[in-house]
Design a protein around this nucleic acid. Structure first.
Ligand SMILES: [Mn+2]
Ligand SMILES: [Mn+2]
Ligand SMILES: [Mn+2]
Ligand SMILES: [Mn+2]
Lengths: 218, 218
DNA sequence: AATAATTTTTAGATTAATCTAAAAATTATT
DNA sequence: AATAATTTTTAGATTAATCTAAAAATTATT
């Protein structure tokens, strides 16, 4: 039996370890979970007991196979629910995360497999993130940050790095959605702001924006 | 802030107090919650502190207006989710309860109002129980137990008293669903078993079955 | 009305998850 | 290599929810 709190720790460790970081530090987890390092130490011992993580004192943690399975399953549930909320219940993409944080902990294999079918087996969530299949397989698409695209590139928006409400609303306001086509026109050397063209309209976006928008060069 | 456990206690008190019982006893709650009386006493003090219930030592509890609001809202969420599971995710009516027990605790006003709209504002759940509207109003239909129907009555099934998997599967097996029309043919004095006719087929059901099936006399 | 039976509460413990303050270990800097 | 800074762990407390055993109150029975 796994508690909701344990699930959240495992998810945090998964996300922190995603980009090649093998040993996730106590402090990093504490920051992600908005809790104190001492609480993390306690929980990490417990997760280690239950063999969800490998842990050696002062060395940080890594998810075990078992831990990874749990993590991927939660991510799968989170993203399927996000699709449901947007596709079926008319939520906008900046409103889904908090509710999905709750829904991802509902325990029922049938619920998720039926939901998956009902949504017609979506491959990506509303933010462009891939949805692991029932076996935990994640197919990644080759996306780059808009800040890394070359001048003259024709791109299509495929995801967001940050999915805060503020960022997503900015994109809405400027008619940038997943699937939007854009051309990279100019990069200003001084501040790395980027001029892009969507259809016929030009728009200047800051480096910070460009750093949080994933595109595929077409 | 209300915890999941508090919500479950409030719901239990609501269901126990539904049929005119004003003061729900500690023991009754303990039985319903599958917990010990001493745990109930502790929790009941807490609920009283937070003014969800009126409580005087040794006198049992009654929900306050605030408590009733919470209870009805949970019941609303529970039943809406049951409809969703049956209508959209192809669950059968004996599979929905456990999952709905989890889903009823998800906190999001928008989620429920959108779900309600998505389901086209259902008035009853898969077991024939009424779904409170957003203001908490419950419209009750005049249903009676099949065991109380008179010989010769033409009836339509509108609900179940017990919604255990065993009972619901018995009904499935005998082609009795909500909406099924039946005629009361005979009641055996010895054991109060009832002979009913569905279309052209006669079926003898025990008093216990008749005592758990709600019908409307047409 | 007294006694017995039952119900409810209290007292004291336990487990999960958290915290603060201090100690210990590791890493960075002189 | 020694010292300083930072990170991590430990020790001891706290809160929510639960439990067992015993005490207190209520209800039922003689
Ligand atoms: Mn999300
Ligand atoms: Mn997402
Ligand atoms: Mn139910
Ligand atoms: Mn129901």
């Amino acid at each position: 039996m796994i508690t909701l709190t344990e699930e959240n720790y495992i998810k945090a460790i998964y996300h922190l370890g995603k980009y090649g970081v093998n040993n996730v530090s106590t402090n990093a987890i504490a920051k992600e979970m908005e809790t104190k390092a001492s609480s993390v130490t306690d929980m990490v011992k417990k997760l280690s007991e239950k063999s969800y993580v490998d842990y050696k004192k002062y060395q940080g943690v890594t998810l075990t196979g078992k831990g990874k399975e749990v993590a991927v399953n939660i991510v799968r549930k989170h993203r399927l629910w996000e699709v449901f909320l947007v596709e079926k219940l008319n939520f906008s993409w900046d409103e889904v995360h908090e509710v999905a944080e709750q829904l991802e902990h509902i325990k029922s294999k049938k619920l998720i497999s039926q939901l998956d079918a009902f949504l017609e087996f979506p491959t990506h969530d509303p933010h462009g993130d891939p949805i692991p299949d029932k076996t935990g397989k994640i197919k990644k698409i080759d996306k780059i940050l808009l800040s890394e695209a070359k001048i003259g590139d024709d791109c299509i928006c495929v995801g967001v790095q940050d999915s805060s409400s503020d960022f997503l609303k900015y994109l809405d306001k400027n008619n940038i959605a997943l699937g939007t086509e854009l051309k990279v026109c100019h990069r200003e050397p001084f501040d790395n702001s980027v001029t892009i063209r969507i259809k016929t309209k030009e728009l200047i976006i800051s480096n910070m924006i460009a750093n949080n928008l994933f595109v595929k060069v077409s």
